[in-house]
């Protein structure tokens, strides 16, 4: 080896050493996809992990995932034991692992709604019922596995028009994300979209929405959404009473900085039965068979 190669080698080795991952120990893992601001999840949720570790007395670590589908798979395969799910992904995950329980939800999640938004050029105005003029326009949902961005809006669209969205609209897209739905409807790329009310209101206060270009034309009825769920075998894996301790830690969380990660005002108790409407809705639109 020539000297230059040796130097290169050393640089490369040390760089990779420095950047190398540190292996996880034996911990209780959890995952969470907040409904907005998914940047720097690892840093933000590591603080939640620290809080839980301190309160529960066992080490917690956060596993970042990108999609509801991935979070369900991780839960199913015991790669995480605790998760902050959307309404739909929560039901999917708990059905896949016997004995799993929803243990808490955000205060806001009792009365969640989705908005149908429209570009101003459609001429559609806010109304009590879904306007017939929507037919034949282009429409975008959010992520495919999202409760507020897809499941509930699709359910009410089907209920009103008694047709699948592909039949009602000329084009049906999946923007993948609430912010993108707003951006795409605002730019007129899609004429209509379905969006989570919390994201809409946050972007409204942030000033990214131009009310002259896009507005809410319809609100869905309320439904339960995000929730904390644990695997049925959590106590077996980590000792009796762990689930109860986690629940208590979540319910007594009052640090606004930590709550803002989700973002929720506070967490309140929840149980599986709260989400039966989601299961029924999912069955109605074919997500549950």
């Amino acid at each position: 080896m020539r000297p230059k190669t040796v130097v290169n080698t050393l640089i490369a080795l040390s760089a990779l050493l420095w950047l190398g991952d540190v292996a996880w120990g034996q911990e209780l893992r959890f995952t969470a996809i907040p409904d907005q601001d998914t940047a720097r999840l690892e840093q933000r949720f590591t603080r939640i992990a620290d809080y839980l570790s301190q309160e529960v007395g066992i080490p917690f670590s956060y596993v970042p995932v990108k999609s509801y589908g991935a979070s369900v798979q991780a839960f199913k395969n015991n790669q995480v034991q605790l998760a902050w799910f959307g309404g739909l992904s929560g039901v999917q995950a708990r059905m896949a692992v016997q004995g799993s329980q929803a243990i808490a939800q955000g205060e806001e999640d009792q009365h969640f709604v989705s908005y149908i938004i429209a570009h101003h050029s459609t001429g559609l105005q806010p109304a009590e019922t879904l306007p017939e003029a929507m037919r034949g326009m282009s429409f975008t949902f959010g992520a495919k596995g999202s409760t507020s961005g897809r499941l509930m809006p699709e359910y009410y669209l089907r209920l009103h028009f008694t047709q699948a969205p592909e039949k009602i609209f000329q084009t049906v897209g999946f923007s993948g994300d609430h912010s993108k739905t707003i951006a795409l409807v605002q730019s007129g790329s899609y004429q209509l979209g379905a969006v989570n009310f919390k994201v809409w209101e946050k972007e409204l206060t942030r000033g990214t929405i131009d009310p002259g270009k896009v507005q809410v034309i319809w609100k869905t009825p309320e439904y339960p959404d995000y929730n904390w769920s644990i695997r049925g075998d959590l106590d077996q894996q980590f000792g009796q009473g762990t689930a109860a301790k986690i629940r208590q830690a979540l319910l007594s969380l009052d640090d606004p900085a930590l709550l803002d990660t989700f973002p929720r005002r506070r967490f309140i108790p929840a149980d599986n039965s709260l989400y039966l409407p989601i299961l029924e809705t999912g069955k109605a639109i074919g997500i549950f068979r």
Binding site: T5, A12, L13, L16, G20, A23, W24, N77, N78
Partner: peptide
């Protein structure tokens, strides 16, 4: 070809192989 071995070995040593591959899954 002469140099690629170095980052390769480094990658091999330093990638976290932690994986929850379980027979049950």
């Amino acid at each position: 070809p002469g140099f690629i071995v170095v980052p390769l070995v480094a990658a091999l040593l330093l990638t976290s192989w932690e994986s929850s591959l379980s027979l049950a899954n």
